[in-house]
Design a protein around this nucleic acid. Sequence first.
DNA 1: GACATATGAAACCAAAAGGTACTACATAAG
DNA 2: CTTATGTAGTACCTTTTGGTTTCATATGTC
Lengths: 106, 106
Amino acid sequence: MITNVATFKALGDPTRQQILAMLAGRDMTIGEVVDHFDMTRAGVKKHMKLLEAGRLISVKADGRERINSLNREGFKSVMQWVSYFDQFWDDKLDALASLVEQEEQK
Amino acid sequence: MITNVATFKALGDPTRQQILAMLAGRDMTIGEVVDHFDMTRAGVKKHMKLLEAGRLISVKADGRERINSLNREGFKSVMQWVSYFDQFWDDKLDALASLVEQEEQK
DNA sequence: GACATATGAAACCAAAAGGTACTACATAAG
DNA sequence: CTTATGTAGTACCTTTTGGTTTCATATGTC
């Protein structure tokens, strides 16, 4: 319940969200990603590193190229963390239901 | 597909995640939240502001106190954004299934 | 009214993040 | 072998962020 911080941090940037959307279309090398942005290769590389740290992408070497693809782990981790709070909303609704019942009995 | 950045940014910090967990237990004033941290009131206040910007909490005035509670909107927004990528995984699995079929036909 | 308490906001500071330029290395192609 | 391409890494700069201190305001309490 603490390591997902890297994942959320990675998601808290519009550029990185865009990169993820692109990778949902197809796997890409950093070079290909760079072509879609007005930014240095080194700049993009930094974003990729953060995405990888958040386990949102994974990299596979192929010759001198590195293929970047979406990594399900990060997404799963986000889903799980947020799901933890579902219980909270359920309880709230239960409490609300009880209140309504009490009101009706008056 | 861009404003949820504030929400993810708010979630990308361990202190703020802790605060959310506390508020899942019960609603709290800033003062009560401060008691659980080794941090200045102003410091906590800043975190609360970011959580509010991410629509993860909402504030209700009560006399001189301000009651902070979880706000479902931010959580819903996260769920929705991540769900967008579900399609990706589904397609991947479909493609994998096709591959397996082709292999079996050989 | 005088005083305590709960809060908001601004000024300031150190550290982290977003970005660039530059260097170096590995692989592909002539 | 030489050259071009795809990449990683470091040094550096500027902006943002996490945090404190300080001041001002609004509501409760005696």
